[in-house]
Design a protein around this nucleic acid. Structure first.
Lengths: 196, 196
DNA sequence: GGAAAAAACTAATAAGTGTTAGTTTTGCAG
DNA sequence: CTGCAAAACTAACACTTATTAGTTTTTTCC
């Protein structure tokens, strides 16, 4: 009856999910076969089903792990008593850090959520929309308090979220640009611009 | 021997490519079947092959149409004698406009290029890298001329390109935010920041 | 060591894939 | 009207897909 762990603190199911994230990232969800995934795990395809329910369950696990991490973090920032620019800075830095630590899973959540099945698809979109709304209200509050220029809050959030999402391209250039420079420059760019 | 056009100025092949862009956008390349595409065109699947060579040829046509449009535009901007911030502004506005006019194709080029076959994949990546390089050299020149703050040029380009790429999310909110507001606010945000 | 559970295996299935072959229909040129 | 090419059709192929059934091996626990 007792769940058996494989050595360390990660169950075999968790190993499968990690490998799936890596596979889905490099080949996309639909082009990834359970046979390939099984190969990566070191097992035949049907054996995977002793640990997981289905292929789409893997995508769900990945997307919601990331979605929940973002939601949790934004709630923390929401309840902290710092200025609006500082809140936005905290959001940007969190995006950069989670991207650096969980690249595969963030990438898959960003790119492959479309293949979630209902009702998970609707749930995921709802999580994402709430996240956006939280950020929009940060900006709105900042404008009221005259900490932020009177911009369209939706466009500002769109700009910021899209910019940090693009960090996925940075992976290629890790050598040329350090995480420190990246974080500081992007925060500065998105808050203060680049024109002298 | 002569190619026959279907009525207007668009051949049947062009119609197929347009429909393919729409289909690939909403379902992704791999999840789109030739039978579905045929349905959208109003024909049986094998009939498509009277006009096109293969499924992947459709993806190629879409990706290179967009890739070449961007390359062409950046060359124009490169040779125009305007200040660096104005060049960057022109780039951003071009992205927004081409996204507004050719949404499906831009979306597919951005999301599905991974499924191009060699040598097209390598060619596409090369086009994209050259585009990035052009923008980086804009920023470098701007820093030399003291028009731009001394930032890391790669990070600045990454931020700008990612931000404009995110315009795909704006499609949902067309009603709430006009193209004018979007363009002006995003240009301002990426050049001058949002902090007062 | 022996029982029981977990997890591996092989074999198979039903559905869907892009594409080809071969044939019939359509539509224009003379 | 006739002939011919373009483009539609049906049927089929060879392959891949996720997943299930049934069985055997491995591991765990006493």
């Amino acid at each position: 009856m007792a769940k058996i762990q494989t050595g360390k603190n990660s169950s075999k199911k968790e190993v499968i999910i990690e490998k799936a994230a890596s596979l889905f990232k490099s080949k996309s969800y639909n082009a990834s076969s359970m046979r390939e995934l099984a190969d990566m795990v070191g097992v035949e395809a049907p054996s995977l089903y002793n640990h997981i329910g289905s292929k789409s369950e893997l995508l769900q696990a990945i997307c919601f792990k990331i979605g929940n991490a973002f939601t949790e973090q934004v709630e923390k920032i929401k309840s902290s008593k710092i200025s609006t620019p500082e809140k936005i800075e905290a959001v940007i830095r969190f995006h950069i850090e989670i991207m650096a630590e969980n690249f595969d899973e963030v990438y898959v959540a960003n790119h492959e959520w479309k293949h979630l099945k209902e009702p998970y698809l609707a749930d995921f979109l709802s999580i994402r929309r709430n996240y956006e709304k939280s950020l929009i209200s940060f900006i709105e509050t900042g404008i009221e308090r005259k900490e932020i220029k009177p911009v369209n809050p939706y466009v500002a959030v769109l700009t910021i979220l899209s910019a940090v999402r693009g960090l996925e391209f940075w992976q290629r250039n890790k050598k040329n640009v350090s995480l420190q420079v990246l974080e500081n420059d992007m925060v500065n760019h998105l808050l203060n611009g680049i024109v002298k």
